[in-house]
Every structure is written in structure tokens, then in C-alpha cells.
């Protein structure tokens, strides 16, 4: 396999202010070109922190980052000044959960997309405008010419998210980070956005990291799924393996607590308890206090993320074994 587009090595992120919180703990992750990875997990599992760290969006004064991030061979943590500016949006770009907050309310959609194209090296304003308009058409905004001059508040939620995607893709990034892009949308609009993302990914060949808490959305777009819990990746594998044959008790629990038609009239197999406090994580496996399969080893030693043919798994007592080949 050729060098991966993105590789995270032992990435740890700690926030220290009034209190310390370990948001990411030794995350190792690789992503090939043209691959779509879904990061699945509950709130506080470190999905969004991973994306924000990739773009270096956290304030340096209160964040301690250890490990390494490499995108196309470049060391992201060492970037400074103009390099970092070009990297953000140029190589790696992001779609946020709430497009109403991500856009500047006092500029039109068109102005904002044009501005980002100009900031990334285009000199000719006319060309940049034409390119911005082309992007709006590409994300299937009806009457793109009219919407070009619309302010963010004049668009509906679905339209705004399309415009957000147009803005993110305006500089043809190699990697798109999508942070719960469909969570705030209605079901009928969500599926439109998911289909659009899939289509654009096929067309441009970019890689995508798609953060979601909704397994259904992950299944619709992703090739590979990484399940996160308390700042660690606990299981990773092709989407069909994760859905049909999950190994980690947390993944099993997550799938069981996703309500489906077959559950009607029966109590749900919920995972007891709540996610741990990131300020004082339990020693050993973070999931051990909620796990029905936990043993003494689980609460003393952190299980390593072991690779197998079906992906990677970090568990001492998995529900079913990852095949080793």
C-alpha cells in the first residue's frame, strides 16, 4: 500500500484550564486516499476533538498535543504561519455541524466562498467568483445565481449545509472533515446531504472523515468505521463487519441500543451507566465500569489496539474474536 494520506501516531490531546481533561488518548489512525472513514461515538468520546486537532483549531495556550499528525507527508503539528493557512481549507477542509453558526452573517454566501478562493492563491476576482458559482451549482443548490447573493439567514437549513459543503470544497481539498453535518437536519434533508457527500466524494476522489453518533448515517457513506470511546479508538473495521459482526462490547451495546422495528414491545438492551469523566478516566479500559464482560484485568490494564484481518480491536474480553491471519 502506498503512503497513507493521513496518519495519526499516538495522538494525545489534553486540555488544561481550571481542570485537566484528556480528550484524546494515544489515537493511531491511517487513512488512504479516496477512503471514507466514519468516526462513531457518543458525546465526549473525542470524535470532534480529533477533527479539530487535525486542523489545529484548539487554542495552543490551553491545549497539550502529543504524538504526530502527518498529512501527505507533512508534519501538521510543526506548521506555522502561511503554511498553516494554506493547509486549512487547501489540503484539509471541514464542514461543521451547525452551518448557521459557521457562516459569517454579514456577508453573502457568494462573497464568503469567493474570499476563501482568493485567500488560497487565486488572483483574479472574476475567476474566483465564477469558481464559487460553479461550486454552488455542484452542490445542487437550485437557482445558484440567485443564492450567490443571499445571506446565510435567507437560506433554509438544508441549503445552508449545501453552501457549507461548497465552501469547504472550494479549494479542492484532499481531505474533507465532516463534523456531524446532518445532525441538525430533518430526516428527508439528511438523506439528501448524505447522498450529495457520497456523490462529491466519488467525483473528486477526496478522502472523508465523517464524524457521527448515528450508525445509520455512517452506514450510508462510510467504507470504514472507527468506534471511539473516552478518547480512544476501541474498534475499527470495514462498515459491514462492524454492523454485522461487532467484537467490542461497546460496539455491540451501541448497536443494540439503536432502536429498530424489531425491538417493538421489548425492553432495549441498554448499556448501563454514563460515559466516564474525561478529567479522571478509570485506570485500565475506560469502558470497564459499564461493561458486563469486565474482568480484573480490564480495570487494571489498558487493552492494546490489536490488528487483525477484520480491522483493529482494543478489548481483553471481546464478544467475538477478531480473525487473525
Amino acid at each position: 500500500m502506498s503512503a497513507p494520506l493521513l496518519s495519526l501516531e499516538d495522538l494525545s490531546v489534553q486540555f488544561h484550564g481550571n481542570r485537566k481533561a484528556s480528550a484524546l488518548n494515544q489515537v493511531n489512525l491511517e487513512l488512504g486516499a479516496g477512503e471514507v472513514l466514519a468516526l462513531l461515538g457518543e458525546s465526549g468520546s473525542g470524535k470532534s476533538v480529533t477533527l479539530r486537532t487535525l486542523l489545529r483549531l484548539h487554542p495552543a495556550s490551553r491545549t497539550k498535543i502529543q504524538g504526530s499528525i502527518r498529512v501527505e507527508g507533512q508534519d501538521v503539528l510543526a506548521m506555522k504561519g502561511r503554511d498553516l493557512e494554506l493547509y486549512r481549507g487547501g489540503t484539509v477542509s471541514m464542514v461543521f455541524q451547525e452551518p448557521g453558526l459557521a457562516f459569517d452573517p454579514v456577508y453573502t454566501i457568494g462573497q464568503q466562498i469567493t474570499e476563501s478562493i482568493l485567500a488560497h492563491g487565486e488572483k483574479d476576482v472574476g475567476k474566483a467568483k465564477a469558481q464559487a458559482l460553479e461550486m454552488l451549482e455542484k452542490v445542487q443548490i437550485p437557482q445558484a445565481k440567485r443564492r450567490f447573493d443571499a445571506y446565510p439567514h435567507e437560506l433554509s437549513g438544508g441549503m445552508r449545509q449545501r453552501a457549507m459543503i461548497a465552501l469547504a470544497l472550494a479549494c479542492k481539498p484532499r481531505l474533507l472533515l465532516a463534523d456531524e453535518p446532518t445532525t441538525a437536519l430533518d430526516a428527508t434533508v439528511q438523506i439528501q446531504i448524505l447522498l450529495l457527500l457520497r456523490e462529491l466524494q466519488r467525483e473528486t476522489g477526496m478522502s472523508v472523515i465523517f464524524v457521527t453518533h448515528d450508525i445509520g448515517a455512517a452506514v450510508e457513506v462510510a467504507d470504514r468505521v472507527a468506534v471511539m470511546y473516552a478518547g480512544r479508538i476501541v474498534e475499527e473495521g470495514p462498515v459491514s463487519r462492524i454492523v454485522n459482526n461487532p467484537c467490542h462490547p461497546y460496539t455491540v451495546g451501541l448497536l443494540a441500543s439503536t432502536v429498530g422495528p424489531e425491538h417493538r414491545g421489548k425492553p432495549l438492551q441498554a448499556i448501563p451507566g454514563a460515559p466516564p469523566d474525561l478529567a479522571n478516566l478509570p485506570g485500565g479500559c475506560s469502558f470497564a465500569p459499564r461493561c458486563s464482560r469486565a474482568s480484573a484485568q480490564c480495570s487494571s490494564q489498558v487493552p492494546p489496539l490489536v490488528s487483525g484481518s477484520g480491522g483493529r480491536l482494543a478489548c481483553w474480553n471481546p464478544v467475538s474474536q477478531l480473525e487473525n491471519q
Partner: peptide
């Protein structure tokens, strides 16, 4: 969250 949602749904039932 999904895992907590399932607990609350059970409680409601």
C-alpha cells in the same frame, strides 16, 4: 446519546 437514550426509553416504558 444513543446508549443513554435506550435507558430513558426503557424507563419511560
Amino acid at each position: 446519546d444513543k446508549s443513554v437514550q435506550a435507558q430513558v426509553l426503557n424507563l419511560l416504558q
